[in-house]
C-alpha cells in the first residue's frame, strides 16, 4: 500500500473562524477516494489547501512524496483539478482551451498536440474540438473540464462535485467516464460529491463535519456502522402481528400499512419471518444505504 496523499494534523482558519481543526487522513495510490461533508464543513477549504490554492497554519501535507508549501511547483505538475465552477473560456473552442491550459506544463509542441489528442479521446469529446466551450451542453462541458484536468497526465485527479447540476442520464455517463479513468489509467481520484450512490463506489470514504473528521472507512464499513438494516412486512392482520412483535419485545414502527423492524444485520430477519409466518402477506429486507450512513454520521442531509 502506497500513500499518494497524506494529511497530518491540518489546521486552517479564516481570521477567528477555524475552518479545519486538525485533520488526518491519507489516500492510497490508484484508488477512488471520496471526501464527503455537508456544506460549510471544511471540505472545500481542505481541497483548496491540498491543491496549493490556500495557505495553512499548521500540519503537514505530502502529495506523491512532495511537501506542500515547499515543492508546490512540482506538486502542480502532478495534480489535475476539475473545479466545481467551470474555469475554461466560453469564447474559445475546446481545442484552443486545451492548448492554452496545456501550455502551462512545459511540454514541447509535439507532445502538447499529442496530449490534446489523447485527452480529447479519453473523454470522448474528439468531435467537439472545434466547438466553442460556451456553446456546449452541461455534460459536454464537464467532459471538457476533465480533459483539461488530464492534459498533463497527472497522477492525482481532484474532482470537486463533478456531476452536480447534470441531469441523471448525463451524470451517469460522466460518472462512467470517471470510473473508466481510474480503473484503466491508474489515476488516483480524489472526489467530493453530493451523490451517495457515487460515494458508495469509492474505495475509501472520509467524512468531515465542523472542520473535523467524523468518520472514515470503506463504504461497507460505514454502512455497517452508521446505518441500520431493516425488515419491512405487510401484515394480513395488523393487530395480530403487533401482538406477536410485542411478545418478543421487538422494536417496530408503522409506515402506512407496513411495519418496519430495525435489524442489526439482515440475517436477524430469518427468525422474525418464521415467527410471523402466516400473519404477513409480503416482506422486504433492506440494507442500510450510504445516504442513511451520512445522515447517521453528520445528522444532516447531504443536499441542503
Amino acid at each position: 500500500m502506497e500513500k499518494i496523499i497524506e494529511v497530518k494534523n491540518l489546521h486552517k482558519s479564516y481570521g477567528e473562524v477555524q475552518a479545519v481543526k486538525g485533520i488526518d487522513f491519507y489516500v492510497e495510490t490508484g484508488k477512488l477516494f471520496a471526501f464527503l461533508g455537508p456544506n460549510g464543513a471544511g471540505k472545500s477549504t481542505t481541497i483548496n489547501v491540498i491543491c496549493t490554492l490556500l495557505n495553512y497554519e499548521q500540519g503537514e501535507v505530502t502529495l506523491d512524496g512532495l511537501k506542500l508549501g515547499v515543492d508546490d511547483a512540482k506538486i502542480r505538475q502532478q495534480i489535475g483539478i476539475v473545479f466545481q465552477d467551470s474555469v475554461l473560456d466560453n469564447l474559445l473552442t475546446v481545442e484552443e482551451n486545451l492548448r492554452i491550459r496545456g501550455s502551462f506544463y512545459g511540454l514541447d509542441s509535439k507532445s502538447l498536440e499529442q496530449a490534446i489528442e489523447e485527452a480529447l479521446k479519453v473523454t470522448d469529446i474528439y468531435e467537439l474540438k472545434n466547438r466553442r466551450y460556451g456553446q456546449l451542453s452541461g455534460g459536454q462541458r464537464r467532459r471538457t473540464d476533465i480533459a483539461r484536468a488530464l492534459i498533463h497526465r497527472p497522477k492525482i485527479l481532484f474532482l470537486d462535485e463533478p456531476t452536480t447540476g447534470l441531469d441523471p442520464q448525463t451524470r451517469k455517463s460522466v460518472w462512467n467516464m470517471i470510473e473508466h479513468l481510474y480503473k484503466n489509467q491508474g489515476v488516483t481520484v480524489f472526489l467530493t460529491t453530493h451523490y451517495m450512490e457515487e460515494a458508495a463506489k469509492a474505495d475509501y470514504v472520509v467524512v468531515i463535519d465542523n472542520g473535523q473528521i467524523v468518520a472514515k472507512g470503506t463504504p461497507i464499513e460505514l454502512k455497517d456502522k452508521y446505518s441500520t438494516d431493516s425488515l419491512q412486512v405487510k401484515p394480513i392482520n395488523k393487530h395480530e402481528v403487533i401482538n406477536l412483535l410485542k411478545k418478543e419485545k421487538l422494536d417496530y414502527s408503522e409506515i402506512s400499512d407496513l411495519l418496519v423492524i430495525p435489524l442489526n444485520s439482515t440475517i436477524e430477519a430469518l427468525p422474525i419471518l418464521k415467527l410471523l409466518d402466516g400473519a404477513i402477506s409480503a416482506f422486504q429486507v433492506l440494507n442500510g444505504t450510504m445516504d442513511d450512513a451520512f445522515i447517521g454520521i453528520t445528522g444532516k442531509e447531504m443536499r441542503e
Binding site: C51, L53, R76, I81, R101
Partner: peptide
Amino acid sequence: RDFETAPI
C-alpha cells in the same frame, strides 16, 4: 484558480 494550480 486554474492558472494558480498549474506550475506557472
